[in-house]
């Protein structure tokens, strides 16, 4: 075989390998989607979204309380994590480089790697023990702590991508350092920062472990933040380990709703990014 022929062969082999790896990576996703849809779709009906759970033995009912609960938990977590993560990220990028900033950066990375159950224990000690009651607030705190490092790091990284000539331009017009950050740098990095926030939302909305002993669960409809609250994930978990056939079906439906929700967040992240970017370019 000629040299060129050998090179062509090797090249096609590598391309083939890469393709195979991609397929391999996508197989679990496809299977999960397929299986969850097949199992969950049949149990999905209007009641599932509007009705409350039925007592054991009765069939039917839904997870209305869990869906509202999940939204409330995400809301609390965002209210805590978005401001903190954003400002921390801005600090790291704009004032970072000193030893304190690198310490913050390192701890954010460590925090990001801590198992979610441990975060749950921390929130339990912080927000459950003192008042001796599980609450939506405690659940939100746990989820919020998981969001903070993600938001902080993406904000920092995206701000670092904004050319510093923009900052100089603002400073040269008489802007203060902070003004330049908030009025020029952050808006310029906004599409990416929004993506980071939505990705962190997608990540925490599927969490179960940190909620088990913070938000706990609630069979009833509740919107009070100082009371235990139901969430889709914990509800799915509870139903899935139960011995009842009807609950299993509902667990699948809940799982489908969860997957759809996260899918929606991801799509939203893309749409928002693209729209904001378009505003920037032309």
């Amino acid at each position: 075989m000629t040299r060129a022929g050998r090179r062509r062969l090797l090249s096609s082999a590598v391309v083939l390998l890469c393709g195979a790896a991609v397929v391999l990576a996508l197989i679990p996703l496809v299977f999960i989607f397929f299986y969850v849809i097949r199992q969950g779709f049949s149990s999905l009906n209007w009641d599932f979204f509007t009705k409350m759970p039925k007592p054991v033995g009765e069939t039917g009912g839904g997870m209305a309380n869990a869906m509202v609960g999940t939204l409330i938990l995400i809301g609390i977590a965002s209210a805590i994590a978005i401001p903190v993560g954003l400002v921390a990220g801005i600090y790291l990028s704009e004032y970072g480089g000193k030893s304190f900033a690198s310490l913050v950066r390192f701890t954010a990375d460590v925090l990001n790697g801590i198992p979610s159950i441990v975060i749950g224990i921390f929130a339990y000690g912080l927000a459950v023990m003192p008042v001796r009651r599980f609450s939506a607030l405690a659940g939100g705190v746990a989820l919020g702590f998981m969001m903070i490092p993600i938001i902080t790091r993406t904000t920092e990284e995206l701000l670092n991508l904004v050319p510093s000539s923009l900052r100089e331009g603002a400073l040269a017009l008489g802007a203060t350092r902070a003004r330049a950050s908030f009025s020029v740098m952050v808006p310029a990095a906004l599409p990416g920062i929004m993506t980071g926030i939505l990705v962190s939302l997608a990540r925490i909305s599927g969490e179960t472990a940190p909620l088990l002993f913070t938000a706990f669960n609630n069979r009833f409809f509740s919107t009070r933040v100082d009371q235990p609250i139901s969430s889709l994930t914990v509800q799915v978990y509870t139903y899935a380990i139960s011995p009842y056939e009807d609950w299993h079906r509902q667990a699948w439906a809940g799982a489908l709703v969860l997957v759809a929700m996260i899918f929606l967040f991801s799509i939203l992240a893309r749409v928002v990014t693209r729209r904001l970017e378009r505003m920037h370019r032309t």
């Binding site: 050319p163 000539s165 923009l166 100089e168 331009g169 603002a170 400073l171 040269a172 017009l173 008489g174 802007a175 003004r179 009025s183 020029v184 808006p187 310029a188 920037h280």
Partner: peptide
């Protein structure tokens, strides 16, 4: 001082905002 001594850079560095907002920026912050 930087308001009184303005600067134009080697590489143009308009803010990723509208033309109007670019010019209005310095007026607004000052």
């Amino acid at each position: 001082l930087r308001r009184r001594v303005g600067m134009v850079f080697q590489k143009s560095n308009p803010f990723p905002k509208s033309i109007f907002e670019n010019v209005a920026y310095g007026l607004k912050i000052n």
